[in-house]
């Protein structure tokens, strides 16, 4: 049994303009100790998925249907007290903007110690010592004295380390990281990612990493799931996804990653932008932006199928490669025309 199982999750937002299906029937699972990425442009429903796992969605968002099972338990059916026990203790979260995620009027130490006290029956002194210890483990220099400093006295990267320390304080089984480096400088980013990788191994924690940046995901994750307009459009082990992307959207995302030594004048981009989810396109949601779109794409929505067999996978194994494109059920006339060129040197780990 997987650690986390999400099945047919549907999340809606009720807005002035109409009902928005921010997440539309996604299913996936994460095993113990596994690192899985959710990738897509902003608005794809990645953050909403993360918040749903901890039932942190607020009005006007609502989980409409589907199931979330954690360690065999039905998360959506938990009582308030059970939910409180799950949050922070078993599933912890790291947010996008560390400066917003920390309360400006309490010291960082207090904010970590508080998380420990919320789940374990410890003395204030023990909580304090453990918080300092955590600050050390996320490599904040001079942890004991920085314990009593306020968030605004930390740089962005250091703030995110504090948030990570807080998330790890009760040794959770799953760490949900929602764009943990997006708000940070590129130079800081690598350090944070490396830290996450080390700590996940050290604490034997599974990670769900959300990012819009395929580059961030490459080094850290075992598997990648690509989301578009509330749906998962492709999932594969990381290496396979990079060297052999199957969905045109994934291909487009990869084509637009800038590289050092690039000889192209201009980066190709995917035309247009994410559709308004109040009024989603018919058929394949990506078809208005897809350079390979055909008549079939406009008429029918493709289902997520095994790219080899073209058969929908109800219970995919972690290493299966699935994509939601008519190409793999042989419904396209012209097919997809692109090539992955591998050059020497550098590359992925």
């Amino acid at each position: 049994m997987a650690l986390l199982e999400v099945e047919d999750l549907v999340v809606q937002f009720y807005t002035e303009d109409g009902t928005v299906r921010a997440v539309d029937g996604i299913s996936y699972e994460i095993d113990r100790g596994e690192t899985v990425a959710l990738v897509g442009e902003s608005g794809a429903g990645k953050s909403v998925t993360c918040l749903s796992l901890l039932r942190l969605l607020e009005r006007p968002g609502e989980i409409v249907s589907g199931e979330i099972r954690f360690d065999g338990r039905d998360v959506l059916g938990l009582s308030d007290e059970e939910l409180r026990d799950l949050r922070g203790n078993e599933i912890a979260m790291v947010f996008q903007d560390p400066s917003a995620a920390l309360n400006p009027v309490y010291t960082v130490g207090e904010q970590i110690a508080e998380a420990i006290r919320a789940h374990e029956d410890v003395t204030d002194e023990t909580a304090r010592r453990r918080a300092i210890d955590l600050l050390e483990r996320v490599e904040i220099p001079d942890a004991a004295s920085r314990y009593s400093e306020y968030p605004h006295e930390f740089s962005g990267g250091m703030q995110q380390r504090v948030v990570i320390a807080m998330a790890l304080s009760c040794e959770p089984d799953l760490l949900v990281c929602d764009e943990p480096t997006t708000a940070l400088d590129v130079t800081i980013e690598a350090g944070i990612l490396e830290l996450l990788e080390d700590l996940a191994a050290e604490f034997d924690t599974a990670i769900q990493l959300v990012s819009h940046d395929l580059g961030v995901v490459a080094g850290l994750c075992d598997r990648v799931q690509v989301m578009y307009a509330g749906e998962i459009v492709e999932r594969a082990p990381t290496e396979e996804l990079y060297y052999d992307p199957k969905h045109p959207y994934t291909v487009g995302l990869m084509a637009s990653i800038p590289r050092i030594g690039d000889d192209r004048d201009e980066l190709p981009t995917i035309p247009g932008s994410m559709p308004d989810l109040v009024d989603v396109p018919t058929g394949c949601r990506f078809h208005p932006r897809c350079p390979y779109a055909e008549e079939a794409c406009r008429l029918r929505a493709p289902s997520l199928v095994d790219v080899e067999t073209g058969v929908p996978a109800d219970e995919p194994a972690p290493n299966d490669h699935l994509a939601a494109c008519h190409e793999y059920t042989d419904d396209l006339v012209d097919g997809l025309d692109y090539e992955v060129v591998v050059e020497d040197g550098g590359g992925l780990e």
Binding site: E239, Y243, V251, M254, G335, Y338, V340, V342, L348
Partner: peptide, 20 residues
Amino acid sequence: MTEHQPTTERGRIRIEGFEE
């Protein structure tokens, strides 16, 4: 229609054809 053969090489990757 082109057949996609998964590459066995590993290294720096680049997508060709999408832009066109």
